[in-house]
Design a protein around this nucleic acid. Structure first.
Ligand code: SF4
Ligand code: SF4
Lengths: 143, 143
DNA sequence: TTCTTCGGCTTTAGTAAATTGCATAGGAAC
DNA sequence: GTTCCTATGCAATTTACTAAAGCCGAAGAA
């Protein structure tokens, strides 16, 4: 529900890959060091990302990770949801049954949360990793 | 950052008041019982709401709470932010200095979070308590 | 004075996030 | 095929925050 370290780390992890050539295999240790992320934590995150087909893993000597698709085809939403599951402002938004109070039939708060969440998630769906990389490059070029 | 019980309880608490005539003084015990909220928890929430001028407290025998303004003048955002402080998807959005990684100059993730948060909060700013009451009444009338 | 209801503070319990550790498996290099 | 490197998988820990309860004091109507 909230923005968590895992998500932040995940984004920066894939972003690091997105900034390189897709063919370059990058070990976890390098990413972890470059982005200041606890290595084991990033490992767990990358495991999920690998399973869901966003990145590809390569074991053995000189192994590591590469992006599985082009950065322009990976939405921010995709990355975030892979890491922490569907983003919900409150559990009941995914399933009305999980309402903690006993609003079995109707809940005005839920209505407004649905609207809010829809707008929120749409932002993450609109942007891709290549957008982020673009912004960063534009910024460093400007200075 | 996340939607918390306190916020949910707070909304339902004021909503209970909003459904009544503004002149009626309602004790915490009644609200707590009607909405299934731990009384002491609700007490703490109402304390903040009282301080920020959303509701008014009345002590002594037959005391309790009333709304300080008309429901149509109380935005959902106002209530939520009173309870848990400014809503931020990540701390750095309020203050760049509180960045946990060392992105001192620029951060692409922050850019996208700013956009997302703006859209999210705008929803809560658009609706007032009277909107929620209206929805509820429309619903109960329909069934 | 008395009883009721809010006010403010402290403490406890519960839950989830953040991090670390270790033993295993796959695979390149030689 | 041996060796070394790097990911994989699971368990355990620490930390942080949420949720809730408790206690005593203050205000105020009856
Ligand atoms: S009371 Fe409303 S907002 Fe809360 S969990 Fe139930 S449906 Fe969701
Ligand atoms: S790295 Fe970016 S998103 Fe994360 S705290 Fe710093 S500014 Fe915010």
């Amino acid at each position: 529900m909230q923005f968590t370290k895992a998500e932040e780390y995940g984004i920066f992890g894939v972003l690091y890959l997105a900034e390189k050539d897709r063919a370059v295999v990058t070990p976890l240790s390098e990413i972890s060091k470059a982005q200041n992320i606890p290595e084991k934590f990033l490992a767990k995150i990358f495991q999920s990302l690998s399973k869901s087909g966003i990145i590809r893993s390569h074991r053995g000597v000189r192994g590591g990770f590469t992006l599985a698709k082009d950065p322009s085809e990976i939405s921010v939403k995709e990355v975030l949801e892979t890491i922490q599951g569907p983003y919900h402002l409150m559990k009941c938004l995914g399933d009305f049954k999980s309402c903690t109070m006993n609003k079995v039939d109707f809940c005005p708060l839920r209505e407004i949360l649905l609207i809010a969440e829809k707008r929120l998630v749409s932002v993450f769906d609109e942007y891709t990793l290549s957008d982020l990389v673009k912004w960063e490059k534009a910024r460093t070029a400007a200075t």
